[in-house]
Design a binder for these strands. Structure first.
Length: 781
DNA sequence: AAAATAGGGAGCGACA
DNA sequence: TGTCGCTCCCTATTTT
C-alpha cells in the first residue's frame, strides 16, 4: 500500500520518478509525444531531414524521434470529427520543444505544450495522495496518509530590503508535530533555541532538518525564503540537495514570480492559497493568522530585527518561532482541500498548489478529453488572445432596489445558477451550432445559436460528473451526520465536496478565460443571457404569487410579503415553501431555487449596497463603506454604529448621536492616528498612472525617502491640513504632522452615513436638527 | 468575468 | 481673470 506524493522527470536516469511516501518507482516506458495533422510518416521525416540539411546538422533531429504512428482520434479543432493523424513520440522531454518548432512549419500540431509530468498524470490512472495499489494499478482507499509536515521560515539581518549578496541569514525556524525549533547563529535565552556557530552551519542544519519531512510549508517561500537561501548557500559553496534522492532544489523564474520545487517532497507555499481561499484586505502572515485563529501574533516590524539581534532581545526568537508555528497551523488547515483538488483534477500537489482555478478546470478537461479519445484544442495564439481579451459581453441582471428600511425579508437564490444553466442547455464550444443537429425541427435558438441535442458537450459532461460525485458525497455525509459519525472520513468527504463545488463554479469563468483551450465567448454570453432570463422570470412569478421583490442581483433576490396582510414568520416561511415548490416544478431538472434566509430587518441603499439583520441579531453588510478597505476606520466605525442603531435598535436618534459624537471627537483631536489611515492599493507601476491620485502621490513620497514601493502594495495615508489638493496633502503616517478635521468630517464621516439616512428619506438638514424626534416606523415601507 | 458605486482630478463654460 | 458647478475620465473596490 503506497501513496504518490510527487513526480518529476529525472534527467540523469532519463525517466520519470514517481515519489511515493516510502519508495521511488522509476517509470521508464512513458515517453513524451504530440500530434501532427498529417498521416504521411515519410513526409514528416523528410521534412525533418531537409531541415537538418539546411542547417548543416547531422541526423540530430531525426535521432530525437522515437516513433511516428497513425492514430484515429476526434480532433476538437476540426469540427469535432474523427480522423486519422500522426502521433509523434520523441525520446526525451526536452526534444519536444526542438521538434515541434520545426514541424510547426510543416503542419498543424496538437497537444504539444503540455508539460511532461502533467501529461503523465493525464494519461495514467494513479490518483495522487491516495492509497494506491501500484501492482494492480487501482485505488485501495481514500484515506489521507500520515504525512510528515514541517513549516519553515528564515530571518535575515538587514537594514533595508534584504540583499542576498551581503545580508546573512541569522535564524531559521521550524514547526512540526512535536518539534518546534529556532536555529540561530547567536545564543538567546529561549527554550526553543538551538545554537549553531555561524551562517554556514545554519544552512547545513536547515538542509538536515528539512530532509526529514514529506511536506514543507512556507509563507511566500516561492519568492523569498528558498531563493534567498539558495543564494546564501552559493556564497558558502553549499548546494541545496533537499530532494528525496538528494536532488537539488529547482528554482524557476516565470515573469514576476518564481517557484521553488524540491523533488520528492511537496513545498506548499501558503501565501497564494490564502489569497485564493480567503477574502481579506491584506495577506501578510499576521492577517491570515488573525483571520483563521483570531490570534494576534507577536510583531516586531522588519526594521527592528537588526536592533533586537544586536541587543539579544529574546522577543526576536519568539517572533521567529511564532512565524513557523502559525505557518504550520495554516498549512494543516489548507492541506486537506489542496489534497482534494489534487485528487479530483489528478495533478500533483505541488502543481495544484500553484494553479489558478481556471487552470485546474483546464487540466480536468484535458483528462476527460483524453479519456474520450479527443484531441484537445490548442491554446490561443498571440493574435487570437488579444482578440479574446478585447471582446466583452453582458453579465448578470441587477434590479434597482426599493430604497429604505424593510422588515420580514425572505431571500431566495439559485443553487449554482451558471453550472446548472450550462448543464441543462448543453452549452459547450463543440455543441454550439453543431453539424449533427443542423436540420432538426423544433429547435430553440438562443441569441441566434442552437445547441446539440444528440451528444453532451465536454463542459456540461465534466460538470455533471462533478455534480453527481458531489451529490453522492453529500448523501454519505448526511447519513454520517444522522448517525453522529463526525469522524476522519467525514472530514475528508466534506473537503471533497467543497473542492468539487469550487471546481464546478469555475467552469463559467473558464469559458470566458482568454487563455482557455475550451474558450467560448458565445457560450459564456449565452450563460449570462439565460441567467438574466431565469432570474427575471422568477421575480415575475414571485410577485404574481404575492411577494414584493425588494432587490435582486444575478442569481438571487430579497423579498417581502406584499398582499396587504401581515404574516407571522411561520406563515411567511410556509408561503415561501409553497412558492419554491411551484417554481421548481417549472424549472429544468438541473435548476433549483432555494430558500436562503429570513431577516427581520434590512436597509437597502443602492445596487450592491445593503445591510441585513437576522433573528440572532447577526448583521450582514454588503458593499457599504464598512466593508471596503479604502475608507478610514473612523469612517467605517461610524457607519457601523449607525447601522447598528438602525438595524438592532431601530433608533434614528441614536444614529444621529453617534454621528455627532464622532464629529466632536474629530474636532477635539481625540481620534487615534491609525484610525485616520486610508488604505489604497497600487495596481500598476507608478509611471503608468494617467491621473494624479492620493495613493500614487504618497507612493512617490515614500520612494523619495529611500524606501521601495512595488506594484500590489497597499499604500496607507492620512490627509493633512492645508489648502492644496487632497493628493498633495496625503502623507504616510510617519510624516503626517496633523490631520484635516474638515476633510475627515465632510469626506469620510458624513458621506457614508448620509447615504444610509437618505435611503430612509432623512435629509441632511433633518440630520442636523436635534430637536425633531424621528422614530423608525415613520420610514417603514 | 461583468455590474455597479463612488472619489478625486481635469476640463469647460457661465458668471461676476 | 478667478471660481463655481457640472460632466467626464480614471481608478479602486465590491458583489454576484
Amino acid at each position: 500500500m503506497e501513496s504518490l506524493i510527487d513526480l518529476d522527470y529525472n534527467s540523469e536516469d532519463l525517466c520519470i520518478y514517481l515519489y511515493l511516501l516510502n519508495e521511488i518507482i522509476k517509470e521508464k516506458d512513458f515517453k513524451p509525444y504530440f500530434y501532427i495533422n498529417s498521416t504521411d510518416k515519410e513526409q514528416i521525416l523528410e521534412f525533418l531531414k531537409d531541415y537538418e540539411k539546411k542547417h548543416k546538422l547531422d541526423s540530430e533531429i531525426t535521432k530525437m524521434i522515437e516513433k511516428i504512428e497513425t492514430v484515429k482520434k476526434i480532433v476538437f479543432d476540426q469540427d469535432y470529427q474523427e480522423k486519422e493523424l500522426s502521433k509523434v513520440t520523441v525520446k526525451y522531454p526536452n526534444n519536444v520543444k526542438t521538434v515541434r518548432e520545426i514541424l510547426m512549419e510543416f503542419e498543424r500540431l496538437y497537444e504539444y505544450d503540455i508539460p511532461f509530468i502533467r501529461r503523465y498524470m493525464i494519461d495514467n490512472k494513479v490518483i495522487p495522495t491516495s492509497n494506491w495499489d501500484f501492482k494492480n494499478n487501482k485505488l485501495i482507499d481514500n484515506k489521507i496518509p500520515e504525512f510528515k509536515t514541517v513549516s519553515f521560515d528564515i530571518e535575515v539581518y538587514c537594514h533595508k530590503g534584504p540583499d542576498p549578496k551581503k545580508d546573512p541569514i541569522i535564524m531559521a525556524s521550524f514547526s512540526s508535530k512535536g518539534h518546534n525549533v529556532v536555529v540561530s547563529t547567536k545564543k538567546f535565552d529561549h527554550d526553543k533555541l538551538e545554537y549553531v556557530k555561524d551562517e554556514k552551519e545554519l544552512i547545513k542544519r536547515i538542509i538536515e532538518i528539512l530532509k526529514d519531512y514529506d511536506i514543507i510549508y512556507t509563507y511566500n517561500g516561492d519568492n523569498f525564503d528558498f531563493p534567498y537561501l539558495k543564494k546564501r548557500a552559493e556564497v558558502f559553496g553549499l548546494e541545496l540537495k533537499l530532494g528525496k534522492n538528494d536532488e537539488k532544489i529547482k528554482i524557476t523564474k516565470g515573469g514576476m514570480n518564481s517557484k521553488s520545487y524540491i523533488p520528492g517532497r511537496v513545498h506548499i507555499d501558503l501565501y497564494p492559497i490564502a489569497r485564493r481561499l480567503l477574502n481579506l484586505t491584506k495577506y501578510r502572515l499576521e492577517n491570515v493568522t488573525e483571520a483563521l485563529f483570531d490570534v494576534k501574533k507577536v510583531d516586531v516590524g522588519h526594521e527592528n530585527i537588526p536592533k533586537m539581534w544586536d541587543k539579544l532581545d529574546e522577543t526576536l526568537v519568539e517572533y521567529s518561532y511564532q512565524d513557523a508555528y502559525y505557518t504550520q497551523r495554516i498549512g494543516e488547515q489548507f492541506l486537506p482541500l489542496e489534497i482534494m483538488f489534487s485528487r479530483v483534477v489528478n495533478q500533483s500537489l505541488y502543481d495544484i498548489n500553484r494553479m489558478s482555478s481556471s487552470q485546474m478546470v483546464e487540466y480536468l478537461l484535458l483528462k476527460n478529453s483524453y479519456n474520450k479519445g479527443v484531441i484537445a484544442p490548442n491554446r490561443p495564439s498571440g493574435k487570437e488572445y488579444q482578440k479574446r481579451i478585447r471582446s466583452s459581453y453582458e453579465g448578470g441582471y441587477v434590479k434597482e432596489p426599493i430604497k429604505g428600511i424593510h422588515e420580514d425579508i425572505v431571500s431566495m437564490d439559485f443553487l449554482s445558477l451558471y453550472p446548472s444553466i450550462i448543464m441543462s442547455h448543453n452549452l459547450s464550444p463543440e455543441t454550439i451550432d453543431c453539424d449533427c443537429c443542423n436540420n432538426e425541427e423544433n429547435e430553440e435558438e438562443i441569441l441566434g445559436h442552437k445547441f446539440c441535442k444528440k451528444n453532451i458537450g465536454i463542459i456540461p459532461k465534466t460538470l455533471m460528473d462533478l455534480i453527481d460525485r458531489r451529490k453522492s458525497v453529500k448523501k454519505i455525509l448526511r447519513e454520517k451526520a444522522k448517525n453522529n459519525e463526525f469522524d476522519e472520513e467525514y472530514q475528508i468527504l466534506d473537503y471533497e465536496q467543497r473542492s468539487i463545488k469550487v471546481l464546478a463554479n469555475s467552469h463559467y469563468g473558464y469559458l470566458a478565460f482568454p487563455m482557455a483551450r475550451w474558450y467560448s465567448r458565445d457560450c459564456a454570453e449565452i450563460t449570462t443571457h439565460l441567467g438574466r432570463q431565469y432570474i427575471q422570470k422568477t421575480i415575475e412569478e414571485a410577485e404574481n404569487f404575492g411577494f414584493k421583490v425588494i432587490y435582486a442581483d444575478t442569481d438571487g433576490f430579497y423579498s417581502k410579503w406584499a398582499n396587504g396582510e401581515k404574516l407571522t414568520k411561520d406563515e411567511l416561511l410556509e408561503k415561501t415553501k409553497t412558492f419554491l415548490k411551484t417554481i421548481n416544478d417549472k424549472l429544468p431538472g438541473e435548476m433549483e431555487l432555494e430558500f436562503e434566509g429570513y431577516f427581520k430587518r434590512g436597509i437597502f441603499v443602492t445596487k450592491k449596497k445593503y445591510a441585513l439583520i437576522d433573528e440572532n441579531e447577526k448583521i450582514t453588510v454588503k458593499g457599504l463603506e464598512v466593508v471596503r478597505r479604502d475608507w478610514s476606520n473612523v469612517s467605517k466605525n461610524t457607519q457601523k454604529s449607525v447601522l447598528n442603531a438602525l438595524l438592532k435598535e431601530g433608533n434614528v436618534e441614536n444614529a444621529k448621536k453617534v454621528i455627532q459624537d464622532t464629529i466632536k471627537e474629530l474636532k477635539d483631536g481625540k481620534v487615534n492616528k491609525e484610525d485616520l489611515l486610508i488604505h489604497t492599493q497600487l495596481t500598476k507601476r507608478i509611471e503608468d498612472y494617467k491621473t494624479t491620485s492620493p495613493h500614487v502621490e504618497v507612493a512617490k513620497k515614500i520612494m523619495k525617502s529611500g524606501n521601495r514601493v512595488n506594484t500590489g502594495d497597499v499604500i496607507s495615508y492620512i490627509i493633512t491640513s492645508g489648502n492644496k489638493s487632497i493628493s498633495e496633502r496625503a502623507e504616510p503616517i510617519e510624516t503626517a504632522k496633523d490631520y484635516d478635521t474638515n476633510y475627515y468630517i465632510e469626506n469620510q464621516i458624513l458621506p457614508p452615513v448620509i447615504r444610509l439616512m437618505e435611503a430612509l428619506g432623512i435629509t441632511k438638514d433633518e440630520l442636523k436638527d436635534s430637536k425633531k424626534q424621528i422614530t423608525l416606523h415613520h420610514f417603514l415601507k
